[in-house]
């Protein structure tokens, strides 16, 4: 009964406390969805109030009273006029709702890609995200960097969505609705964030054991910051002689079958690209902060942090783990 108020009011109040509320859009697709949502919510809200009132009225008005306890009420079998009325009015409502819906579907799905658009290929893997910028030659993981888009010179980001294994779904509620990543079925979506900041989301399509820890971070950068980030990512990996032992352990174990560190023999693609690992604030798709302790813990035993992730515990000696972790910390 209190669903109406909870549906309409509480989310708005909570929107301020949640970074993932659909009521706080920060880009055009999310904004047009919200406008449509408010329209649909108002229409369904009106229907709710009307029918709810009818129900409450008939229940209280026509309840059995001691006065009429022994007589049957008038037996009414139906009325064609009334049936017509409550058929035609809903039909009209549906037509209106549909037109509003179709407009937004078209506006979002069929939007042309402008010349200045940034292109990113997002590949879903069991429990982490791979992001490739084909035009910029960048490969990174889990944290997507895109430029803010101003209305006069729009620089929206167009994502091509692929999957390396099972289905996943890309969902940043404040930037756009979700779209699935399905193997052998490329999809597309776009967003044009209106302000800079970090926006959160996560995989929305059940993809296996660690579906819950397949989090997403989008960093919307100012044009200058984005350019700087791009330049940083385009560099080959830092070669630091002081961590040579760690690097050797890394390159002589199976790490390199799964991970790439550009400019070194490590060129595996099963796991995230580690070339600029330290430029990311989290590891393992948001399962933990990217701190030295967490890195060490992760390399020592991934299951302890993310039970069921597809990176095996490599059973390295403590010294080797320390060495590899120090090597990782130089990859900025």
């Amino acid at each position: 009964m209190f669903v109406l108020s909870s549906l309409l009011l509480a989310p708005k109040a909570l929107a301020q406390h949640s970074q993932t509320s659909i009521f706080a859009p920060q880009s055009t697709p999310a904004k047009s969805i919200l406008d449509l949502s408010i329209f649909v919510l108002s229409i369904t809200g009106i229907i709710f109030v009307v029918v709810f009132t009818l129900l409450v009225y008939s229940i209280s008005k026509f309840r059995a009273k001691p006065a009429n306890a022994n007589s049957e009420p008038a037996q009414v079998y139906g009325s064609n006029q009334i049936e017509m009325a409550w058929t035609i009015i809903p039909i009209l409502i549906v037509v209106v709702l549909f037109l509003a819906t179709a407009r937004v579907i078209h506006a979002i799905q069929d939007a042309p890609e402008p010349a200045g658009a940034v292109e990113v290929t997002a590949i879903g893997h069991q429990y982490w995200w791979e992001f490739r910028y084909p035009k910029l030659g960048i490969v990174t993981a889990n944290e997507l960097h895109i430029p803010v888009s101003d209305p006069i010179h729009p620089t929206p980001t167009f994502l091509q969505l692929l999957s390396a294994d099972t289905d996943h779904s890309f969902w940043i509620p404040v930037l756009a609705g979700k779209t699935d990543l399905i193997p052998n079925h490329p999809n597309r979506m776009w967003m044009d964030p209106h302000r800079t900041g970090i926006f959160l989301g996560q995989c929305a399509q059940y993809c296996g054991v660690q579906h819950a820890k397949m989090l997403l971070r989008v960093s919307v950068d100012s044009p200058q910051d984005f350019a700087a980030w791009v330049r940083g990512q385009q560099q080959p990996a830092v070669q630091d002689q002081s961590v040579m032992t760690g690097r050797q352990v890394f390159e002589h174990t199976a790490c390199i079958n799964c991970h790439t560190v550009s400019g070194t023999p490590a060129d595996g693609r099963f796991g995230p690209d580690l070339t600029h690992l330290m430029s990311r604030t989290t590891i393992a798709a948001g399962a933990a902060e990217n701190t030295p302790q967490n890195l060490r813990l992760w390399i020592d035993d991934p299951d302890a942090m993310k039970h069921g992730s597809l990176m095996p515990a490599m059973k390295l000696s403590d010294a080797d783990v320390d060495a590899v972790a120090s090597y990782m910390e130089t990859l900025r």
Binding site: I33, L36, L97, A100, T101, A176, G177
Partner: peptide
């Protein structure tokens, strides 16, 4: 009905 409005359902 809300979910039938496809863009709303994308959320």
């Amino acid at each position: 009905i809300m979910q039938a409005a496809a863009p709303f359902d994308w959320q």
